[in-house]
Simulated assay, not measured.
Amino acid sequence: MDPYLPPVARHVREREPLIDVQNLTKVYDLGRGRTVQALDGVDLHVPQGQVFGILGRSGAGKSTLLRCVNLLERPTSGSVRVDGQDMTALRGAALRRARRGIGMIHQHFALLSSRTVAGNVAFPLEVMGTPRAQRARRVAELLDVVGLGDRGGSYPAQLSGGQKQRVGIARALAAGPKVLLSDEATSALDPETTGSILDLLRRLNRELGLTVLLITHEMGVIKRVCDSAAVMHDGRFLESGPLPELLAAPDSRLADALFPLPTVDLPGVVTLSYAERATEPVLSALTREFDVDVNILAGTVETVAGAPYGRLKVQLTGERTAEALEYLRARGLAVRTAGDPLAADGAEPTGEGA
């Protein structure tokens, strides 16, 4: 068996983090007694086989966190474990070997202009000392996987932005990693190309069992491919968890940003967050069982990572309104009344391009 072929779909062991970051801090010394704290006690737990998205504005600390995962940046304190190995304890050759299990794709492709497409994909294999015949087989296989089987002899200048990013993905997969890090991989692409790259990442996640950690400032990326997400601001996570739980939470900043609804200054207004029951006629049941009037003021239902989610802002009037709200909660809907605060202080999670 060729040791450089990608693993077949691995069994996803729920609750066992493949990436386990504990209390991570990163402080940059600017000289003359000045410092900048880029990470402030970050905890990150990414289960095997998931696509995990970190959302935040520029300067939130997203890229620093990503580079600490593969130790391109050494954290000031805290620990980083990938596939059970303490990355922060490694140096030199041991660290280089460990990084082979972590592929990385970059915002601006980072391709070698003097090499062909095939040469770019082969480069990490050459560094590893992979024999020429194995390199050729592996490169051909990967170019087919990313849809560039006929472009191996082309140079980066002859490719579109989306094609360049596909080369970058193929190169990141060359060593058969278990983890793929994506550093704003679609922010330089047009919307249609962005969609195709995200679909490719999702397919690789499912077919190869890859665990994907991506950072973005674009809400569409989170909605399209992520299983879990975190909202980052000033080097800290405002919230983090499985996407269904975050979207169903009545006080989630991520849900507010993904499904923005207008502010309505009327009595009896509540915000309902739908998850598994997004397609059930729960509101019509209220009028029948509790004799309340339901006035729908605003709402949206969308497909997020293949499942329907949504939010409604409604006005309820009637003597049994309190009972109706308890009924909704019992049915699994999250309910936020007009006076309920958000879960955490801090800036909104949206950023440029969101």
Rank of each mutant, 00 (worst) to 15 (best):
M128G: 13
L142D: 00
P156K: 05
R138P: 01
Q134T: 15
R137A: 11
D144F: 07
R137T: 03
A136P: 05
G129S: 08
G152T: 03
R132T: 14
D150A: 15
A122S: 10
L143D: 03
R137Q: 09
N120C: 06
D150K: 14
S154D: 09
G161L: 06
V146H: 03
Q134N: 13
R135P: 09
P156G: 03
G161T: 09
N120M: 03
A133N: 12
L125E: 12
G129L: 12
G162D: 08
M128P: 14
L125Q: 11
V145K: 05
G162C: 04
G129N: 13
G162T: 06
D150P: 10
L143R: 04
R151C: 05
S154W: 04
S154A: 13
G119R: 04
F123M: 15
L159D: 03
M128I: 15
Q163D: 01
G129M: 06
V139Q: 00
S154I: 04
S154E: 08
L125H: 11
Y155L: 10
R135I: 13
R151N: 06
R151W: 08
E141I: 02
K164R: 09
K164A: 08
R132K: 12
G119Y: 02
P156E: 04
N120H: 06
V146I: 08
R137H: 10
E141T: 11
E126A: 09
N120E: 04
E126H: 09
L159G: 02
T130Q: 11
L148C: 02
G162V: 03
E126N: 12
G149F: 05
R151P: 05
A133P: 15
V127L: 13
V145H: 01
R135M: 10
V121R: 00
A157M: 14
N120S: 07
A122F: 01
V139W: 00
M128C: 13
K164N: 11
D150C: 06
R135L: 13
A122H: 06
N120T: 06
P156C: 05
Q165P: 12
A133Y: 14
Y155W: 10
A157V: 13
F123D: 13
L125P: 11
P131T: 06
S154N: 11
R151M: 15
A133C: 10
D150G: 08
G149S: 10
L148I: 02
A140V: 05
V145R: 05
G153P: 12
Y155V: 10
G161Y: 07
F123A: 12
R151I: 09
S154K: 13
G129V: 09
Q163W: 01
V139A: 02
L142Q: 03
S154Q: 14
P131L: 08
A157C: 14
R151D: 04
G147Q: 08
N120W: 01
G152A: 05
S160L: 07
L143H: 06
G152Q: 04
V127M: 14
Q163N: 03
